[in-house]
Write a protein that binds this DNA or RNA. Structure first.
Lengths: 232, 232
DNA sequence: AATTGGGAGTGACTTTAGTCACTGGCGTGA
DNA sequence: TCACGCCAGTGACTAAAGTCACTCCCAATT
C-alpha cells in the first residue's frame, strides 16, 4: 500500500480528518497496516498496550470476557473509527479484548509515535478528548441499560437502532438484516443466547415483528417504540 | 478565600499538580469556589455543560437516575478529583447527575476558560487524557460487574474495598464504617435497598461478618475473598 | 448419500432480582 | 414527651434471568 492511500484513509477518520497534508504525512509514514481474519483477536484484556488502532475496513468488536465464558460487548468500531486511544495515555494495559467481526484492515500507530505526535500537534489531543468523550457517553449508556432495563427492552432498542441505520421499508414493515448469530446479539445485550431466542419468539408471537432466519421484519414500529420509551 | 489558598488546593489535584506557579496563577484567578450542602444537586443529567469541577472538600456522587427513581452511581469523587471534564470538550450535555454526599466545597472552571487554558498548555490536555483514562477503566469495571456478577458478589467486593481503604483491624476482625444508608449502598451496587439489607443479613447468618448499625466487622476475610475471586 | 458441526428453538427448571406491604427503631424538633 | 420522618428488617410474592438438556435444521464436507 502506498503512502498516499494511507493518507486518504486516515483523512476519513474522526481523529485526523482536520489535519493538513503537511501534518498528515509524517503520521501516515508511521502507521502500519495489518490484516485480521474474521474472528481473529487483535489483543486481549490485560495485554500491555503498544499503541492505538484505526479501522480501515471491516468491523472490530471490543468486549469483556467473563471467567465463565460470557461476553459483554462494549463497542463495535467500523471504518474511520479509532480505538484503544486511552491506554496509550494512561500507560496501563488494555481494559478489554478486541476481535474482528469480519475480515478487517486496521492501521496501527505505536504508543510512542502517537504520544510524540500529540505533543507536536496539541489540537490532536483535543480531538482525542472529543472522541473519548463520545466513547464515555456510550459506556454510560451501557451501564444505564444494564442497570435499569430488561433483556427484552434492550433487544427492542437494538432492533430499533438497526432498523433506523440499515432497515429497508417495505409494504409489510421494516426489513432488518442482523448479520450475526444469536450468540453475538446476546453478547451485545449482556445476556445469553437462549434469552435472545426466546425474546425474539415472544415478540413474534405478540405480532410486533416477524423473524425469518437472520433477518426480520418489524411489523408494529409504534408498539416497539412505545415499549422502549416506557422503560422504567 | 485568597488566591494563594486556591492555588494550594489546585496543586493537590491530579490535573494541575505538575504546573508551575506561573502557569497556575491565571487558572486560579478563573476558578470560582462554590459551596454545596449535603444532598444538594450540582447539575442534572441533560443540563448543558458550562464547565468542569474540582473537589476541594467533601465528596460528590455522580449518578444516573432511572425514570422509576432508581439510582446507579458511576463515581464518587473526593478532594483533589475533578469531574465533568469530558462534556467540556465534546460540547454535549452532562451525561449524568451530580450531588453532594456531604457538605462540600467545589471549584468551578468555565468551559471557555478551561479550553483556552488547554490550548495554551498542551500538557494539561495530556493530563486530562490520563485522568479520563482512569475514569473509563472504572466505567468498564462497572459494566463488568453489572453484566457478570450478582448483587451478593458486588456487595462483598464493595465491603472488601472499604475494608482495605478504611478498615480498622481489631481482635474480632476488621471494623468497617459504612457512613451511608442502605439506599446509598444500593445505588452504588445498582440494585435496591431491600437486597442490600437481605444480603447483609445473610452474610451475617453465614458468619462471614457481623453487622452493627452503620458499621460492621468482617469476621472471615478469607472466605469473602474466596467468594469474590470465584466470580463466574 | 451419509456425516458432522454450528446455530437455533424450546420445555422444564433453579436462582436471583425486584416489588409490595408492613413493622419497629431511633432521633429530632415542635 | 409525643409525633413525625427516615431508615432498616423481613415475609410473601412476582418476575426476570439464567441453566440444562435435548431436538431440529441446514449447510459444508468427505
Amino acid at each position: 500500500m502506498t503512502l498516499e492511500t494511507t493518507e486518504v484513509l486516515l483523512r476519513k477518520t474522526q481523529l485526523f480528518a482536520t489535519l493538513t497534508d503537511r501534518e498528515m504525512t509524517p503520521l501516515s509514514a508511521r502507521a502500519s497496516k495489518r490484516h485480521f481474519d474474521r474472528g481473529e483477536v487483535l489483543f486481549s484484556e490485560g495485554d500491555p498496550c503498544h499503541g492505538l488502532f484505526v479501522v480501515a475496513s471491516g468491523r472490530i468488536r471490543i468486549f469483556k470476557l467473563s471467567p465463565s465464558g460470557r461476553e459483554q460487548v462494549l463497542a463495535v468500531e467500523g471504518p474511520g473509527s479509532s480505538f484503544a486511544e486511552l491506554p496509550v495515555f494512561d500507560g496501563g494495559v488494555y481494559p478489554a479484548s478486541a476481535s474482528a467481526l469480519e475480515d478487517a484492515e486496521v492501521f496501527f500507530i505505536s504508543r510512542k509515535d502517537f504520544q510524540n505526535y500529540c505533543r507536536e500537534h496539541p489540537e490532536v489531543a483535543l480531538k482525542v478528548l472529543a472522541v473519548v468523550g463520545a466513547r464515555l457517553r456510550r459506556l454510560v449508556g451501557i451501564i444505564e441499560d444494564l442497570s435499569f432495563t430488561t433483556v427484552r427492552q434492550r433487544l427492542i432498542s437494538l432492533l430499533l437502532r438497526r432498523a433506523q441505520e440499515s432497515g429497508i421499508t417495505t409494504k409489510e414493515g421494516i426489513r432488518v438484516a442482523l448479520h450475526t448469530t444469536h450468540q453475538d446479539l446476546a453478547a451485545e445485550l449482556g445476556t445469553v443466547r437462549e434469552l435472545v431466542s426466546r425474546n425474539l419468539s415472544r415478540l413474534q408471537a405478540e405480532g410486533l415483528l416477524e423473524v425469518d432466519g437472520r433477518s426480520l421484519v418489524v411489523k408494529d414500529l409504534p408498539a416497539l417504540k412505545r415499549e422502549q420509551s416506557a422503560q422504567e
